[in-house]
Design a protein around this nucleic acid. Sequence first.
DNA 1: CTGAAAGCGCTTACAG
DNA 2: CTGAAAGCGCTTACAG
Lengths: 343, 343
Amino acid sequence: MPPSGANPRATGRTTLSDVARAAGVSPSTASRALRGERAVHPQLVERVLSVSQRLGYVPDPAARALASRRSDHVAILIPLLSNALFVDLLEAAQKTLRAHGYQTLMGVTHYDRQEEEQLLREFLSHRPAGVLITGVDHSAPTLALLERSQVPCVHLMELSGGELTAGSCVGFDQTLAGLQMTQLLLRKGYRRVAFAAAQLDARVMQRMSGWRQALTEAGRYEPALEWLNPSVSSLELGGKMFEQILAQRPAVDAIFFCNDDLAQGALLAALRLGIEVPRQVAVVGFNDLTGSDQMVPPLTTVRTPRARIGEAAAQMLLERIKGASGAMARLDLGFEIVERASA
Amino acid sequence: MPPSGANPRATGRTTLSDVARAAGVSPSTASRALRGERAVHPQLVERVLSVSQRLGYVPDPAARALASRRSDHVAILIPLLSNALFVDLLEAAQKTLRAHGYQTLMGVTHYDRQEEEQLLREFLSHRPAGVLITGVDHSAPTLALLERSQVPCVHLMELSGGELTAGSCVGFDQTLAGLQMTQLLLRKGYRRVAFAAAQLDARVMQRMSGWRQALTEAGRYEPALEWLNPSVSSLELGGKMFEQILAQRPAVDAIFFCNDDLAQGALLAALRLGIEVPRQVAVVGFNDLTGSDQMVPPLTTVRTPRARIGEAAAQMLLERIKGASGAMARLDLGFEIVERASA
DNA sequence: CTGAAAGCGCTTACAG
DNA sequence: CTGAAAGCGCTTACAG
C-alpha cells in the first residue's frame, strides 16, 4: 500500500515528493507552487496543482511547522466555557480562523492568572501563528511570554487604556456602557440604583466604575448601593442577590446586574416572590444573552457584540500573521442599550 | 541569543541535543529518558531530567509528531456550540485530555454530515492521537475515513445499536429515557402527552421513539400528539410551539419537550399567557440545563451525564491510545429523572 | 542499557 | 524562474 515501498518509517500518505515527481518538477518548486508563492511559472503551478489534486495530496502540518518554524495553530484563551459570552467569542473566532486554514487551540483559564500563564506557555511551545486572549490585564510573566515569543496577539473584549505594550485589542468601552445604562435608569426616574455583581473580573469592575460615575454626577452615589459577590455568576446567585438586596436595602428602586444571567435569575426570583418588575423594582442586565428577551418581563440590557469581536479579532490577527504592520491597533466595536420592559 | 550561534534556521529554543550534550549522553538516550521509556539507567534518567529542567527544555511538538507519526492532538467533533449540552461535553473532555498532555482540536459540524466529513478530513491530516465524535450515525465516507486512519475513536452521547464497526461509545440509552419520562407522566395521570421536538437529530428521534413506545403500550398513542419542527432549538421556539400546541391540540394535558431550552421557553410563554403549569398543562424537558431548576415552576426533566460522558470518553480514548485493546467498548452512564413542579 | 545513523515531510537560503 | 542541498528537532530501527 505505501507508495514508498520498503521504507519502514513512511506513513503511506502521498508526500510532496510524490507530487513533485509526478509533475516532473523539484520538491522546492512543488512546494512553492502549492503555497501560491509567486515566482513560479504559471504553467508549472497549474501542473503541480492538478497532480496534487489527482493524487489527493494533503500537506503534513507537522513537517510544515518544523521546517517553517510556524504552525497553523492559533491559540485562544478564554476565562470560562460556562458563560455563553465566551462561547460566542470562541465560535466566531474559530469560524473565521478555520476559513483561513488555521486550527484553534482553546484554553480555559478559569479567571486564574496562573492557569493563564501555564496555558500560554503550553500553547507557545506549539509555535502558534498567533494568539487571541481575553482581556488586557495579565500577569507580568504572561505579558513577558507574549512579548518574547514575538507571536502576533490580539486582546479581546476590552479596550486598552495603555497597559498593552504590544498586541492589539478589539472590544468596546465597558465603562461607558455601565455609565450609559445607569444614565438611562436615572432618566427614567429611578433614584436608588444598586449595582449587583458577581465574578468581579476586570470588565465587571469597569462597568461598575461607569455606574458609579453616573450616580456621582447625579449626586446619587452611596457605597451601600454596591452589592458585590466574588462567586461565579449564575441564575441562582442572581435570585439570591435579588432577595438579599430587597431585604437589606428596601429603598432601592432599580438594580443593575453586571451580567444577564444574574438579572434573569432576579427576574425569576421576582416571579416566585410576587414582586412586580419594574413597578416595585427595576432590573437591568448586561450582554443580552440568550433568553433575556424571553423573560417575563423581557429584560432591558446592554447588547454586546461578542460575535463580531471574535470575528474582527481573528481577522486582525490574520492580517498581522500575514506580516502587515506590527503596529498596535485598537478597535472599538461599540455596544447598544436594548430597552425592554424590565425597567 | 540563539545558543546554536550561526545557524540561520534555528529557533533559539533549547533543543533535545542541547540537553543531551549538557547531560553527557546521546540524543537517543535523552529522548528515551525524557519520555520515561524504560531501558534507561535510572541515574541517567535523573541526570537528563534535571538538566532538562535547568535548561528549561520544552519538546517541540511538531518535530515529535513528524518523527513519531503521531501528534499530541485529539480531535473532537460536536454539532453545535450554542447548545450548552455540547459545551459541557467539550469542556469535560478537554480538561481530561489536557491533564494528560493532549491538545484538543475542536470542530463544529452544525449537524451537517458534509461538514463533519470535511472537518474530520482536516483533522486527520494532523495525525491526531485520537478522535472523539458526537453520535454513532455518520456518513459512509466519514466511517470509512475513521477506519482507514486507524486512529482510536470514541463516539459520544448515544449507545451503538450495532452500527459501529469500529470505535467505542459512551453515552446512555436515549430511547429508554424517553420511555421512562413518558411513563412517569402517565403514572401521574396525564392522558394526552404530546411530544414536541426541534432539531430532530438522531438522539431526539430516539427519545421520541421511547415516548411513542410508552404511549402505545398504554393505548394512548396518536400521531396528532407529535409536534416536530426541524429548526434549531431555542427558548423562543419553545414558546411558539407551546402556543401552537395549545391552540391546535386543546385536549393535550402534558407536553414532553425534547430539550430543556424548548421547555424553558414554554414555561416562560405560559407565564405570559397566564396559563397555569402544571394545572392546565404539564411541561417536561430533557437534559436538565442551566436554569431549569430556577424556572417558575421548576422544570421536571431528565438529567443527563454529559460532563461524565465527556470525561469517560476522553479516559477511554487515552487507554486506547496507550495501545490497550482495540476492542470496542460500550459504556452506559445512565440518566436520572428529576421531578420538580412542572408536571 | 546505549549510541550513531537514518529518516519523518516539509521549507528555505543559496546558487544559478 | 528553478533546483540541489541543508536543515527544522525529534524518534526509532539497528547494532552493539
